[in-house]
Amino acid sequence: MKNDVPTPAIQAIDLACGYDGVPLLDHLDFTVEPGEIFFICGGSGCGKSTLLRHLIGLQPALDGDIQIFGESFVQATVERRRALLKTFGVLYQGSALWSSLTLEENIMLPLEEYTDLSRQDRQRVACLKLAQVGLSGFADYFPSEISGGMKKRAGLARALALDPQIVFFDEPSAGLDPITSRELDELIVQVSSEQGTTCVIVSHELASIFSIGHRIILLEKQARTIIAAGPPKELAAHSADTRVLEFLHRGDIAPPAESG
């Protein structure tokens, strides 16, 4: 085994995604390096969320393979799948906090399921996670008692409960104001840098893509596959594909003015 080349966090090999045997996306090949902030982008309806559902195992792959740290997720036994699922955290679009549980209990549930921590330690971890996302003190609040931005933060705290190696974000800035959205971006960078967590983000929010994205892949509805991959600023400046330029310049193909 070559030690100098790190195993990719995620590797999709000729992956086909879709529902009921009908592929929506085909021939997907990409790798996500450990510690990277990786964006899956594309216009509405191009299959971004479908790809995410396949990556987190909610939908079986139609063809090809998904490898998580070098281990096939598609061919894994039920036991191994469960073990691999422990290395994921997911922040859903609507936060998906369990409404009948307080924020603390929301974070304690995965800990209860997968660790042997005492109740007191679980509570401590929950408080720590809430503090990490800037929600200190809100442990006893129910999801219905906090704002949309806070729900996203709480959702992230729950996603981080088991200290996952990869965190998936489904449209994290959907429904947030620009300032809250930026704060969430900063939080993602913090999570990524603090413990080297790999972040895979499904989004079409250009501000986030340019400010925090290390690399992106761009999906396209007609082509049903990846039409571009690379660092976002590089693609925006040098891509020869008009579809890529159109997406990254909000439909305005004229080259972008250099911003500070």
């Binding site: 401590r124 408080c127 720590l128 503090a131 990490q132 200190s136 442990a139 006893d140 609040y141 008692e145």
Partner: peptide, 19 residues
């Protein structure tokens, strides 16, 4: 350093009054 920073969060285990 990151571990030390995280440890500080345990110092203030405050809880806001519930609504």
């Amino acid at each position: 350093a990151a571990l030390q920073r995280l440890g500080k969060h345990f110092e203030d285990e405050t809880r806001l009054p519930v609504p």
